[in-house]
Design a protein around this nucleic acid. Structure first.
Lengths: 210, 210
DNA sequence: AACATATGTTAGAGATGCTAACTTGATGAG
DNA sequence: CTCATCAAGTTAGCATCTCTAACATATGTT
């Protein structure tokens, strides 16, 4: 997790000592630096300059790839959301269709993401929304919610997404969303262990699906 | 709501034209300016300088009253939390003891606060926690949760706060917390009306208290 | 080879957070 | 009443940050 891999990536082509003028893939390197810094220092103390230092370029370089600071953060968040969806899909593998356990698993991944990548999570959901308003982000969110919707429908034996399915999904999403924030803010130890996380989610799933 | 009242407050004492060197109550004026700006521009674009401009003082003045920017924001949040608790207490007036409606009412106030004072709400709960770590804030939070705990206990006919009471309260808090964020981010119209807010909270209270 | 383009760089303007050193006015002791 | 003191302002200025403009260097197309 949070691999601090080297960011400079001049492909082996270039002679050793000579620093190449062009970076190779600066855009990706900057996104990775952004991700790291957002996790290390927190989203609100993130600075473009520091990302530049970490990527080994001048402070003006990013503006060839991103409109401004916000767009840089946005790009990092976007990648994070891809990871989140991937994690959810992976978690569903092997759990039988229509089992409430699938709903629980989605929730577990959501919370896990919030705890593993708190910086990115906060950027996406903590209300930077006014500044980070990329339509692709909104779309991605709908997509994640779609996964939940279809699982809930199957659990309830519905062939389509009824109003009731939609409502219950919304309730569960709210719950898991809030839980993620609270666990992140007050520390996992505080409450998360107090009542075991998985059983907590099962409890809620059961209450909501009934 | 969000009264944009005048911030300069030299008490009538001072002759009209002459701007008094001392402000009267700059500390309070700065907190109010901070609150306003946080709501207008959002917490992350808040700047001390702008608050100074609004309060009509030099940019160095705040540092006689606050250690730094964070402490200024912190003070504004602290006042907000006092308002929130006040709202909750007021909402309980007139609702019979032990009624589940009391629990619902608490939730309603929580969500209402998030929608009416989104900036402050986000500062408190959106994860600025690493920076804003005033012990009085933590204490205040516990106090609010305490209100919920005792109401839930009464609803369940328990004379004391059992482990079960604690767990259910925690679940409901998580839910309302998440709901607040989602409604705030995606706009009230989107979902809040779709399933009427009050009935949504009643639904959850009922599911959780059962 | 020559040009166009993409992607770097340096220089610098304008805003911000915060500190240092100075000023002003309110207050209480003699 | 006077004066010394202290709290609460001010101006000046440093370090840092975002972002732009103008210039430089690779890359690749013809």
């Amino acid at each position: 997790m949070t691999s601090t891999k080297k960011i400079e990536e001049n492909t082996g082509q270039t002679p050793a000592g000579k620093k190449a003028y062009h970076h190779g893939d600066l855009r990706a390197a900057l996104i990775e630096a952004t991700r790291q810094l957002v996790e290390e220092k927190g989203p609100d103390s993130f600075s473009v300059s520091e990302a530049c230092r970490r990527a080994g370029v001048s402070t003006a370089a990013p503006y060839k790839h991103f409109k401004d600071k916000t767009e840089m953060l946005s790009a990092a968040v976007l990648e994070g959301m891809v990871r989140l969806r991937g994690n959810m899909q992976a978690a569903l593998e092997g759990i039988p269709e229509g089992s409430p356990e699938r709903v629980t698993a989605i929730g577990m991944e959501y919370v896990a993401f919030a705890l593993n990548e708190p910086g990115i999570f906060r950027l996406k959901f903590g209300g930077f929304t006014d500044r980070i308003a990329d339509p692709r982000l909104e779309e991605g969110g709908q997509q994640s919610f779609g996964i939940l919707l279809s699982e809930v429908a199957k659990c309830m034996g519905e062939s389509e997404v009824t109003e009731d399915v939609r409502k219950r999904s919304f309730l569960m999403w709210s719950f898991v969303h809030g839980l993620s924030f609270i666990l992140r803010d007050h520390g996992l130890a505080d409450k998360g262990k107090e009542f075991e996380l998985h059983s907590l989610l099962e409890d809620v799933s059961e209450r909501m699906l009934r």
